[in-house]
Design a protein around this nucleic acid. Sequence first.
DNA 1: GGATTGTCGACTAAATCGCTCGACATTGTA
DNA 2: TACAATGTCGAGCGATTTAGTCGACAATCC
Lengths: 150, 150
Amino acid sequence: MTVRLSTKGDYGVRALIELALHEGEGPVHRAGIAARRQIPESYLDHLLAQLRRDGFVRSTRGPAGGHELARPASEIRLLDVLESLEGSLAPLGCLEGGETHSEQHVVCGQQWVWREIYDAMRARLASVTLTELLERDRARRGGGAPSYSI
Amino acid sequence: MTVRLSTKGDYGVRALIELALHEGEGPVHRAGIAARRQIPESYLDHLLAQLRRDGFVRSTRGPAGGHELARPASEIRLLDVLESLEGSLAPLGCLEGGETHSEQHVVCGQQWVWREIYDAMRARLASVTLTELLERDRARRGGGAPSYSI
DNA sequence: GGATTGTCGACTAAATCGCTCGACATTGTA
DNA sequence: TACAATGTCGAGCGATTTAGTCGACAATCC
């Protein structure tokens, strides 16, 4: 029952789409993102912290503070966002590029097949930018009324 | 940190490779499989039970009993084995073909990308047979001495 | 009838997921 | 300068899953 993305990646991408939607309009505050994209606010907190650490988001404190994209949406790749939030997407521990992993999973029998699948997956995810995600999101909600009010 | 295969798939495939190696020689007993393929014996028990339920393995009780392939190795696909042991390999709950899933994961934002990746992954895994796995395994151990004695 | 094997289900320890909560830091405004 | 609105950080928690173990039972060969 494993081999499954957690909610982190989805929530995180939703939040970034919201930020992309307001790109260049100054910081958006967390409560707004949470409400409009239906993400538990105190959980979103952690996700934004991670995205900030990895340079996708910049935030300012104080009243009128909030979060905004640290880089243009067109330069943010889905792959990088997911790896930031979910950790490595490698289906087997032994496919991990890094060195810091303690190799708890020795699982490595069918490495040759999975290496191929993993590479293809990463390539595809790398080809998707936040701009494209935003467009897809707009299209999905575009037809009918948005499911949330601004 | 998710999106990772558990040990089940690897252990299960290892066990099937061992059975394929002795195809047509009558049942192989569990303790032997466990020792030769380095799988905890009482855990292997559960994996074999699952593989039997799904028709990959047939077993006989009593002394000189054991397990053997229920179908020719050439007709056993890696995809089916992994889905038997790991459950659905869908990275998102919403990509699941079945109806019985309770949709605890609502995660469905980037469905369009993942659908594509998932389909490619399944196609590749479906193209690998147990025969090929056995050959690869032989090749890997072939050069040097086997890492276990028979 | 006993030894050897498989079968089944209950139990467990550790890790992870999906959160919540509270204390604290920063900063705009009155 | 006070205070209110915001972000930041880390501890903790209930539920679920992983990766097993264990023990009672069933079948079968001798």
